[in-house]
Design a protein around this nucleic acid. Structure first.
Lengths: 174, 174
DNA sequence: GGGTACATGTAATCAGTTACATGATTTA
DNA sequence: TAAATCATGTAACTGATTACATGTACCC
């Protein structure tokens, strides 16, 4: 039974520690940038404050080095792992939110400014093409490595599908 | 030149007032629920506080009725319309954020719990099928009405494409 | 050895959320 | 006319963001 109240951010931290082992805040920042950050990002400062909150809750261990940068390394505790696994075991119903300013801009247009919409479509198509290219590289690298399929590569496939839909959409609109 | 600092929420309010004319907070809540709320939602309280902030900035007019519920009706001012149009005219580069807890749960799984992933896939596929059905109804209704294509119906097409990608993805995974 | 980029954090602020509360309308 | 639901809001809280600041390592 889990009583503590955790946010998605908390689970990202717990999950990354579970997947990648002990890490400093900076390590987490790097990890996030290359993985979840592609679809669920947050500023680096949260990766400094959130682990400390989790440490206070006993879900991670915090160990600070003595000399040099005195950086803190975080390790998942047994309690933290339990908390994470309990959350993962129970599918959350939460609705999908697409925080896409470009889509919002499209939506809030009246129909009487086609030029503005065309400009928007062009910018967006380009941006999504770039993202798509990144994902395709990531997928190619994963495939080339010969590693087996993982939840993370599965998630990447969804990213690819979505970005392809986006590129098609904005291209058609432009 | 626009110096005031507005959030996406601000533009949703300004935009809905531009699209639908004067409205009370409750009207806005209804509007949001049927439109932008599908991909960019927020609690109703923000639709009470945000218009008042915008009124203080002179971007909307606030008029309170005397008797009964003393509800406030908001109207876009000329300044508000300028601010909105300036924002719409300049495509924002902002990255896409997909706040999807289901995807996050998938991503944070280790590879060694296929049953948990299958359960997640089932729940998610069902949820997205429901959303897809809603969108399809909306699209059918729009088509049946014979109204011309608008930015809003275009946005709906993107929603459809994304939801289809989602259903396919979770079905394949399950 | 001076500059630049990397790395690591603190502090203040605020938008957004949650919790609460009450008045008005409808319906059984 | 009581109950349920719709409508309208306020207040408190806090997670997340912004702004700031400084130390460390590398490289020219």
């Amino acid at each position: 039974m889990s009583t503590v109240e955790l946010t998605p951010t908390s689970y990202v931290v717990l999950g990354l520690l579970a997947l990648g082992g002990p890490a400093t805040s900076y390590d987490l920042k790097q990890l996030v940038a290359g993985t979840v950050g592609h679809f669920w990002s947050f500023p680096h400062t949260q990766l400094y404050t959130e682990p400390r909150r989790l440490a206070a809750l006993g879900l991670v261990d915090e160990e600070q080095e003595e000399g040099g940068r005195r950086r803190r390394t975080y390790t998942l505790t047994a309690a933290g792992r339990r908390e994470l696994e309990a959350w993962l075991a129970e599918p959350v119903a939460g609705e999908l939110e697409i925080r896409d300013v470009g889509l919002l801009q499209l939506f809030l247009h009246t129909g009487d400014d086609p030029a503005s919409i065309a400009r928007l479509a062009e910018v967006q198509a380009e941006a999504h093409r770039a993202t798509l290219a990144t994902y395709e590289e990531m997928a190619a690298a994963a495939e080339a490595s010969g590693a087996p399929d993982t939840p993370q590569t599965a998630a990447l496939r969804l990213g690819l599908a979505i970005e392809r839909a986006y590129v098609t959409f904005w291209d058609d609109l432009g």
